[in-house]
């Protein structure tokens, strides 16, 4: 039993759930995207916490990889959101609804 690890992992789980709920209930594409980033950061916290618990470095290295990937994702994601915004003057995910059953 390791109380510090328990605390950090609980924090990571809470952050992940905040991001998860945010993605599900918010309707603004930018906020949804920020919530996804929050989920990625929760995973980063977990990597670092477990790397500390296991006494290895690979978890910390993983966190760096995730940061780079998240940055690349921002580039692609914002470009798509901006393109949609310019065409429709909104970032709401409910307005683009041409593709339906």
């Amino acid at each position: 039993m390791n109380p510090t690890l328990l605390a950090v992992v609980t924090l990571a789980a809470v952050l992940f759930c905040i991001g998860l709920v945010g993605v599900l209930i918010r309707r603004n594409a930018l906020i949804i995207f920020m919530c996804v980033e929050l989920m990625l950061n929760a995973a980063n916290l977990l990597f670092v916490a477990f790397a500390w618990a296991h006494g290895g470095l690979d978890g910390q290295v993983a966190a760096f990889f995730v940061m780079v990937v998240a940055a690349a994702e921002v580039v692609v994601g914002l470009s798509i959101i901006v393109a949609v915004y310019r065409a429709r003057r909104t970032t709401s995910v409910d307005v683009p609804d041409a593709l339906r059953l």
Binding site: V36, A43, E73, V84, V93, P96, D97
Partner: peptide, 28 residues
């Protein structure tokens, strides 16, 4: 096309976050 990309991106990034959190737990 833009709508499709928006949906693909947001849901794909969402799924990647799940994958990553799962990977972190398995690593733990």
């Amino acid at each position: 096309s833009q709508e499709a990309a928006l949906k693909y991106f947001l849901l794909g990034a969402f799924a990647s976050a799940f994958f990553l959190f799962g990977a972190a737990l398995i690593y733990g």
